[in-house]
């Protein structure tokens, strides 16, 4: 069997396209579980912060601790299933650095109000989702931009119900995004 260079290039292009779709599919499968986990935690974190504002700091520390532990569990499950470590200590280090940088500017230097913190953290996280989505897949761009837009809308127009709004759009948005990824 003999083919020319153009046919060979076309075959290699088909191979790369399929391989890219498989990688994206695997990533969506893993990421969807993470989104569902964090969506549920953020939903309850916002609802609890609304009803017990003095405890908000502790609530969010607990949300992050449970989230990291849950992410490790999902990573271990994925490793058992696929043989590839998706969530490891390097991911935790990246997450801690990301939180530390946000805390430095919003609390250490910025002295944000609780409402400003409520809009800063989700939009800060969603910026990463959006940027990562440029490489990984359009679903992340849609989730990142969608939640950012709804967060800013809530900051501007939703009065004392802001945390409940955030429970719905941030927690609910991640949860729906995760479920959508699993379905697709």
């Amino acid at each position: 069997m003999s083919i020319d260079a153009r046919e060979a290039a076309s075959a290699l292009s088909d191979i790369e396209t399929i391989a890219q779709r498989v990688r994206q599919s695997r990533f969506y499968n893993f990421a969807s579980l993470m989104l569902i986990l964090w969506g549920v935690l953020i939903f309850f974190g916002n609802v609890a912060s609304h009803f017990w504002p003095p405890l908000a700091g502790y609530i969010w520390i607990a949300v992050n601790a449970v989230g990291i532990a849950g992410s490790f569990a999902i990573g271990a499950f994925d490793y058992k299933r696929m043989g590839v470590r998706s969530f490891d200590l390097r991911m935790v280090a990246a997450y801690v650095l990301f939180l530390a940088f946000g805390a430095l500017w919003s609390i250490g230097l910025g002295h944000f109000t609780p409402r400003q913190l409520g809009v800063f953290w989700p939009t800060y996280f969603m910026m990463v989702y959006t940027i990562v989505g440029l490489w990984i897949g359009p679903a992340f761009v849609a989730i990142g931009l969608g939640i950012t837009g709804l967060t800013l809308f809530g900051y501007a127009f939703i009065g004392p119900w802001f945390e409940l709004w955030m429970a719905l759009v941030n927690g609910g948005g991640l949860l729906l995004g995760g479920l959508w990824m699993r379905r697709n």
Binding site: M1, S2, I3, I15, A19, R21, R23, V84
Partner: peptide, 28 residues
């Protein structure tokens, strides 16, 4: 080297490309 006639068929090439993008012993 010769092209593999079994793999070269377009759909079989896609199947093998998809399976090869996974870790060894992992299926679809």
């Amino acid at each position: 080297a010769e092209l593999d006639e079994i793999i070269h068929q377009p759909l079989r090439l896609k199947i093998m490309a998809a399976l090869n993008a996974l870790p060894a012993a992992t299926g679809l």
